[in-house]
Design a protein around this nucleic acid. Sequence first.
DNA 1: CGGACAACCTGGCGGC
DNA 2: TGCCGCCAGGTTGTCC
Length: 271
Amino acid sequence: MPELPEVETVVRAIRPALINRQICAFWYDWEMVFNHVPARMIEDQIMQQEILGVSRRAKYIVIQLTHDYLVIHLKMTGRLYVCPAEEIHDADKWVHFKLGLNDGNELRFSDPRKFGKVYLMTTLESLEAKLGPEPLEDAFSLEIFLERIKGYKRKIKPLLLDQGFIAGVGNIYADEALNRAHIHPERLANTLNPEELENLYLMIRQVLQDGIAYEGASVSWYRKPDGTKGESQNHFYAYNQEGKPCRFCGHPIEKIRVAQRGTHYCPHCQI
DNA sequence: CGGACAACCTGGCGGC
DNA sequence: TGCCGCCAGGTTGTCC
């Protein structure tokens, strides 16, 4: 669930509390959160480093340190928040990784499903190598989109979910973009006409931008770092809207499976 | 290239 | 009430 808008919301919320702080404590209770890298190695490396920046790339949270990058992926149920070390937070029971900061605050990473991961990188090359363009950046023009989609014969929805094609789109916003562009999720990419492609390009950007404005979608586990819900789920056209009338034609939204993923669409106007 | 599927995990929920 | 089994979904890896 944390997709581009949710991760962007988290980054914006925690950035002010992290910038220019120094790491002075390290705690974990589940070593696999570091993805097979020994916790001691990470601890030794990052201790005393300063946080120079907090940003987002695709669905990754990138914390730039003096010499390295701490890269965090929330997967489905991860939460990240900063609070005073003595403060109790309702997601604390699933915290698997914590950093103490030199102002008395802590950065906590909580994840009941234990899918989320923390990576230590000296460069971002390995990330960049597998990720497509950021859909909201100016550089992601219609021309670039048309150029990139050329040659793909896959179904359009799984292509939108492919992080190497476009970065940051997940199950929710893929369904939303396809509904607004009136495109069936199983249409093969190479059968979309120029008008449909332009519409899809615009709708991808629109649903992501709206998602950020609504501070993300609290469908199940996602919460903002302050613990409150985002508003995006109150503005869905298709996702989780089975049986409800399509905003465009009134026909009930249906749920099917496409590439093993729950998919919500309007069988009447998404063709 | 594309697709299917398992694996990673656990809370929440429907069914009985 | 309590137990069972299934579902949720981002990413990686394997296999056909």
